[in-house]
Design a protein around this nucleic acid. Structure first.
Length: 491
RNA sequence: CGGGGUGUAGCGCAGUUGGUUAGCGUACCUGCUUUGGGAGCAGGUGGUCGUCAGUUCGAGUCUGACCACCCCGACCA
């Protein structure tokens, strides 16, 4: 076990924080609540971006970019939206600084006040719908399927690396449609895309479902979510897709003429995932030895470590290692050969294990003699000695197997930590003692939802799309219920 | 915004009732020996003790104000 890492079972929050910092994913910056994403962390984010971007484009979306600043008045147009974001906005009031009259330091030039304050975007619906007004006149202009990769700012009270930061990176899709049905179809298409990405690329199983009214996005008629279970029993909202109805079209007066010549407001969706996914990746898979990265997102998939005493040993070992490297690279695998003589092999083993590199290959004099290599996998820490001729096929299969295995492990964890209580007592005990996903009956009222939150801190994460109809009684009020919904304490 | 805590070397920390030249671990640099799971020994570099003011012959230590950050709540992707 890594001795410099807080034990996961002792203090999960500290373990997470230590890991993010020591694995060099990110660190706190000089600006409160804002993080520096370090190269290794950013490399993972770039892989997340690349795959999502590919998926968006494959489903007909294109990228564009809208301004960082939004005129304050835009926010006032959609009532629920302003209600939802007003309390956490950064505001630009001036555009110039000047030297202090005493000559010490710099002050805001009071002459340079903006006529209208600018809000640093917490999300871009308003600036985008103000723009769409100019782009849409007819059904022939629809649909618009745009995605934007951007940073946004939400002035959070309390922040945590990746999970909640004042500034974060994300993508936000904003689509415009001629009909309600088409917009709803888009909303569902994207939540399915997110679920596919979470499960097949990040190896994190998720529950898809509808948010209740009180958990809905500010300004949405319907919010779909994917919810993941972390190793400490808390839920993490990993992505959301919103059906916005005609709310923003009405707020920004975006009308179009349909095929029959009738004038109507445009239907909208918006959807996003953020750097929070990085937090999910850590909390879903990592262990007391450090990160465990799914091969599909690992910046380094295979590391080769030479073990040698003399320079002539190293020459023979390097020849073997470089042959393995080019072999693997020809199969599209990213390989690092770490032949630095400034660190010992033991140091390198620990180092790459901590960084979550899926496969490690050690080559020493013994291997050169026997024409083999030692191959270790990060997820189970198992080691095998493999003949040189079989390394390529072995590693290709191993990477696939690791990807599947960590998903299977996460899924098994979720299944073991999903409960179906039928009494209030049982419900409270599960939430307090163990955490996890709790499927329980609910009477459908916001009042009951609020009471449960007050008494247990658990919220309704979602009404799962695939939850079966089942007659039952609300866990809290005893009133009739038609299906179970997903409760959990959430991040 | 309420409650608690912490600011001393890059990082993690100790520093007694105020008392000489502020120390330990780690990291870093040099040398030798090492290298199949974070190597060993020897030597060395590195500090406006968060900031400002006060008490005192003397302040890392006492007092006050301020600043920053962390943790716990309310708010949130």
């Amino acid at each position: 076990m890594a001795k410099f890492l807080t034990n996961r079972e002792e203090n999960y929050a500290q373990w997470y924080n230590d890991l993010v910092i020591k694995a060099e994913l990110a660190e706190n910056s000089a600006v409160r609540g804002c993080m520096v994403i370090r190269p290794y962390g950013y490399a993972i984010w770039e892989k997340i971006q690349a795959e999502l971007d590919r998926m968006f484009k494959a489903t007909g979306h294109v990228n564009a970019y809208f301004p960082l600043f939004i005129p304050k008045s835009f926010f006032a147009r959609e009532a629920a939206h302003v209600e939802g974001f007003a309390k956490e906005c950064a505001v630009v009031t001036h555009y110039r600084l000047k030297n202090d009259e005493t000559g010490k330091g710099i002050i805001i030039d009071p002459e340079a006040r903006l006529e209208e304050e600018l809000i640093v975007r917490p999300t871009s619906e308003t600036i985008i719908w103000n723009t769409y007004k100019n782009w849409i006149q007819s059904y022939r202009d629809l649909p618009i399927l745009i995605n934007q990769w951007a940073n946004v700012v939400r002035w959070e009270m309390r922040t945590r690396l990746f999970l909640r930061t004042a500034e974060f990176l994300w993508q936000e899709g904003h689509t415009a449609h001629a009909t309600s049905e088409e917009a709803m179809e888009e909303t569902l298409k994207i939540i399915n895309l997110y679920a596919d990405f979470a499960e097949n690329t990040m190896a994190i199983p998720v529950v898809k479902g509808y948010k209740t009214e009180s958990e809905r996005f500010a300004g949405a008629l319907e919010t779909l979510t994917i919810e993941a279970l972390m190793q400490d029993g808390k839920a993490l909202q990993a992505g959301t897709s919103h059906f916005l109805g005609q709310n923003f079209a009405k707020a920004f007066d975006v009308k179009f003429t349909d095929r029959t010549g009738k004038l109507d407001y445009v239907w909208a969706t918006s959807w996003g995932v953020s750097t929070r996914l990085m937090g999910a990746l850590v909390m879903a898979h990592a262990d007391n030895n450090g990160l465990v990265l799914p091969p599909k997102l690992a910046p380094i998939q295979v590391v080769i470590v030479p073990i040698y005493k003399t320079d002539s040993d190293l020459n023979a070992i390097s020849a073997t290692a470089l042959k393995i490297k080019s072999d693997l690279e020809s199969a599209g695998i990213s390989v690092t050969y770490d032949d630095r003589d400034t660190q010992t092999p033991g140091w390198k083993f620990s180092h790459y294990e901590f960084k979550g590199v899926p496969v490690r290959i050690a080559v020493g004099p013994r291997d050169v003699k026997n024409n083999t290599a030692e191959i270790a996998r990060r997820d189970t820490l198992e080691k095998e000695t493999i003949p040189a001729g079989r390394i390529k096929e072995h590693v290709v299969r191993l990477l696939e197997d690791i990807q599947k295995n960590i998903y299977r492990k996460a899924l098994q964890f979720r299944e073991e930590n999903t409960y179906y209580p039928d009494s209030w007592e049982e419900f409270k005990n599960i939430i307090e003692d163990k955490g996890g996903f709790v499927m329980a009956h609910w009477d459908g009222t916001p009042e009951t939802e609020a009471r449960i939150k007050e008494e247990t801190k658990a919220t309704i994460r979602c009404i799962p799309i695939d939850s079966k109809e089942e007659k039952g009684k609300c866990i809290y009020s005893g009133k009739p219920s038609g299906r179970r919904v997903l409760f959990a304490v959430a991040y």
